[in-house]
Design a protein around this nucleic acid. Structure first.
Lengths: 188, 188
DNA sequence: GGAAGCATGTAAGATGTTACATGATTAC
DNA sequence: GTAATCATGTAACATCTTACATGCTTCC
């Protein structure tokens, strides 16, 4: 089962919800580290229902369309908890196209490399500010401690990108000395 | 075009290569931030050839199977450079199942949360050591400066995960005071 | 004789996205 | 009247993965 399935289980464990409500919930805090589309949510619900991990109750509404409100079954709770307990996330290789660009940066004029680094810096800085505010605001709500910890993770990593951007600035300021020995100086 | 296509273009820009050779190259440094499978490589080569961004030369070999060695066309070089110059990588949302688990950590016994954090810490520490060695080793090779910068990025982020794990240790050491005021104290 | 390396791919499926389709009610 | 919200989905496509298939040569 994909992580997305467990993400849906996790959200439903906090409160029963319809597909529509879930589709809104996945745009909440969880979207910071596990983005999902609406179709994806509906798809996972079909899977989870077939597996007996969730069940739906039909809820009739007068002025609004009826809806199916999903809740975890005992099997669903067990599956969620079993997954949460596994400390296995190693295989998740992060993809980062900024670094692909950096790897081939010797094709670029210095000004373009600078632009790349500055764009990364700008984005990291606004992330840092956004997450610092969240971490700060949640500090006084003990019930939000785990949500806060995910924001803190993002904050630390935004800081890491800023630190790296500063490293790069220094490296770009004092361009590599061409006098350093190489094995073959074929080019130039 | 997916980033994978540009990754292949980038590798070919450094030296012409056969599909087989590329399939080995993608397991090199680039796999740290853009993992690709062998089939993926062959698939991208088909696409790039159809688009006229790469061309193949048939190379006959005596004791080994013949091969098709790919190289960039002028259009391929232009496409690669145009992509490298764009400072657009924002949309790339990082997925992180560790954080999904943390978000629902209130379902876990403290010992399991500790295990999760420690597993993340251990992995980050070995990443840190591995990347620090690379960053160090490449320092004396100016030609490797951009490859080094990608390792440095990884290093800074490994350090960030370690810093976060320490944050979490402190948080777990002194569990949240239940006395802090809440709006409704429905539970407990 | 068997494993490992060289070399090229196909086929099936998992995962996920965007856009499309429908239809009622409510707020402006 | 028109846009937004509630509500549920489908269809087509993009991306990528794993496993399978083939066949020759070299090394042990």
């Amino acid at each position: 089962m994909p992580v997305s399935a467990f993400a849906v289980l996790g959200l439903l464990s906090q409160a029963p919800a319809s597909g529509y409500q879930l589709a809104q919930l996945v745009d909440g805090p969880i979207s910071n580290f596990w983005p999902m589309s609406k179709s994806n949510v509906y798809g996972e619900l079909v899977r989870l229902e077939e597996l007996g991990l969730v069940e739906a109750s039909d809820v009739s509404q007068v002025k609004l369309p009826n809806k199916r409100v999903f809740h975890l079954t005992a099997a669903g709770e067990a599956a969620l908890d079993a997954w949460l307990r596994e400390p296995t996330f190693r295989k998740e290789r992060r993809k980062n196209s900024l670094l692909v660009k950096m790897l081939f940066a010797d094709r670029l004029a210095p000004e373009h490399i600078v632009a790349l680094v500055e764009a990364a810096r700008d984005e990291a800085e606004s992330e840092r500010a956004r997450l610092a505010a969240i971490v700060d605001a949640l500090a006084e709500f003990p019930a939000a401690q785990w949500g806060r910890s995910t924001a803190l993770f993002g904050l630390r990593h935004a800081e890491a990108t800023l630190a790296w951007a500063d490293d790069m600035r220094h490296q770009l300021d004092q361009p590599v000395s061409n006098a350093t020995p190489r094995r073959h100086d074929t080019s130039a």
